[in-house]
Design a protein around this nucleic acid. Sequence first.
DNA 1: AACCTTCCCTGATGGC
DNA 2: TGCCATCAGGGAAGGT
Length: 298
Amino acid sequence: MPELPEVETIRRGLVDEVVGRRIDEVLARQCRVFQTKIALLEGLAGQVIRSLWRRGKYLIFDLDRCSFVVHLGMTGQLTLRDPRQMDSDGFLRHPTTGLQRTRQHAPDRHTHLQVALEDGNWMLYRDIRKFGRIYVFENEGAGLEKLLSRLGLEPLSEEYRLPDFLDRMSNRKLRVKSLLLDQRFVAGVGNIYADEALFEARIRPSRRVHGLRRYEKERLFASVRNVLERGLDFGGTSLRDYVNSDGELGSNQEELRVYGRAGLPCLVCGNAISKTVISQRGTHFCAHCQPSRPWKGP
DNA sequence: AACCTTCCCTGATGGC
DNA sequence: TGCCATCAGGGAAGGT
């Protein structure tokens, strides 16, 4: 499930390969992923990609006359493919780290979009569950602005400030995990990093926001940024479908402290990690390190 | 307005 | 072996 660190890793892998290049051809098959007419997608051909940036979990390609926007949803993959190179049909094991890695993949039944660049490389969009969304917005329209205006604080930017974070929490009664998942609060946090941030902040996910102490909110402010930065440092978390733009896996799954560790010993206190459901999402926490009442320690 | 639930989608997995 | 149920979840839409 691509969250901010995964999307940013993909952006960094793509940016030098696509910015400044002209799109030569677009192959798109009808799919609910596309929030735009196929003709508009095919109209990207001939335009130059001027910049590639990210807001929350959205990737935005600015072209000459429009913006091409990608949200990867649950299983979306955006990868580069050089048709002159050999495709990989499986996973290769990394010789030193032992991690699985791949090379480029050929298009298959889940590849919904292929974009040819002037240098012969292709950018492929693949999405098994089709929860991803792809948009094309004309430069004149306000569509892009409207889409991005729904998003909250950008955690790895200078606009991520404690006073705003606290403001947006005030008078909220929902569970703190539900708030973290709300992209209108902080943009880019998903289920994995929400659980990891709450563990680092020593806050139980089921706590109500209005019951949090000031010092707990301050810890959460920092831990959200910390877990996202760490995820980025390790190239993202590959649990199921995530690969970067070169088809390689990230390694942050090795660093997770609670997500996916139900029943295993807490790395801090040794008690078994608990699992419950909040906002229809699997939620992992340590009942000892993340007590149900305010706690200053240790 | 704020909060909560349902739904979309496919592949992996486990029980019988 | 085959079949079916269950689970994973981002975000839009609809309900209270």
